[in-house]
């Protein structure tokens, strides 16, 4: 094990600010070397690029909101045919753009994503013109379906996250508007959503390990999916703790699924695919569960003496989060040691 640990070559050690500073503070490199290395790692003109991208994003957002407002304020003056066809031309424009810029490049992928967003706009306008309002789940169902094919060929992580968001909305609306669950079964939605987003996360990890898709390897996809799945799993657990007497079967089942999910996330991101961000999110979510249990116990014990109740809650919060941070810091050090 020990020899394995030291079998890394110099090239495999990622260079970063911390490493350079450490070498400098130990006197291994000179001040000039430090400056040179830092400038190489973080070019001084990087902020210019950042500003340029920020302005581009703000500009695009303002342009788009201008278009949205133009439509909103002139709603009744535009004929239905005009509304629907202009949106369709927008979609076609985006797709032609995606074709000419090719899906291999970010420009083409962003255009395809814009086309997919416009499909949603089309569905909303269609729903308004033909008054299909109440069945909003159908709107999101069609949107999710229409965008699915493009998403499959897009090879673009943002497009996938976008698709997952509308699919989640579809499932929630479908559950409430079409499945018409009984009160007992209502909270099953948390299980369904946990399965959907959890599977997306699992697939992401599987394909990344297989090195199947380069575009999937960006770390933010993991973080976003982990946080979303954890949140969905956290809600039924907290509901269950908050009012155990009124918890329905579906709350309990979703709570159990949530607890198993938290355990799995901890196990994977601590031991199998060490990742500080995801581990921290899991631990934070765990803290909220522990806090809820504590709050509930103190609340039941000291119903009449609020001062003692709040004092104990405060002390417990300090203790729980202090311990969590100490644990995370220790783990972060171990992870670095395991990897370099």
């Amino acid at each position: 094990m020990d020899t394995e640990k030291h079998s890394y070559t110099l090239e495999q050690i990622p260079a970063n600010r911390g490493l350079v500073e450490e070498l400098y503070s130990h006197g291994k490199i000179t001040r000039e070397a430090r400056e040179y290395a830092l400038n190489l790692l973080y070019p001084h003109n990087q902020w210019g690029l950042w500003i340029s991208r920020l302005l581009l994003t703000i500009g695009a957002a303002l342009m788009l909101s201008g278009v949205v407002y133009l439509f909103a304020f002139n709603w009744a003056k535009i004929t239905p045919a005009m509304k629907l066809s202009s949106i369709q031309f927008g979609i076609i424009g985006c797709l032609i753009g995606a074709y000419f810029f090719s899906l291999q490049r970010i420009t083409g992928q962003v255009l395809l994503l814009s086309g997919s967003v416009l499909v949603g706009v089309f569905m909303a306008v269609f729903g308004q013109i033909y008054q299909t309002g109440a069945d909003a789940y159908q709107l999101f169902m069609m949107w999710s379906l229409f965008a699915l094919g493009w998403t499959l060929v897009s090879n673009f992580a943002v497009q996938w996250i976008f698709w997952l968001v509308i699919t989640n909305i579809f499932i929630v609306l479908w559950w409430e508007q079409s499945a018409l669950p009984t009160k007992e079964m209502k909270s099953m939605i948390f299980t369904y959503m946990a399965i959907l987003n959890g599977s997306a996360l699992a697939l992401r990890e599987y394909f990344t390990l297989e090195k199947a898709y380069e575009w999937l390897e960006a770390r933010w996809t993991r973080v976003v999916l982990t946080i979303a799945t954890l949140l969905i799993m956290l809600i039924p657990i907290v509901m269950w703790i908050g009012e155990p007497g009124r918890a329905t079967k579906s709350v309990m089942l979703s709570g159990v699924v949530g607890l198993i999910g938290h355990g799995a996330a901890y196990y994977f991101y601590r031991y199998k695919l060490p990742d500080m961000w995801s581990l921290a999110a899991t631990v934070l979510s765990g803290c909220i569960i522990v806090e809820s249990v504590g709050f509930k116990i103190f609340y039941e014990m000291f119903r009449r003496t609020h001062s003692i109740m709040f004092l104990l809650m405060g002390l417990m919060t300090l203790g729980v989060f202090t311990y969590a941070i100490i644990y995370l810091r220790k783990t972060a050090k171990e992870m670095v040691a395991e990897h370099v």
Binding site: L95, S102, L152
Partner: peptide, 11 residues
């Protein structure tokens, strides 16, 4: 790209 075009026509 071909799949994308076919899907677009369908949509």
């Amino acid at each position: 790209t071909k799949i994308m075009i076919a899907l677009s026509v369908l949509v």
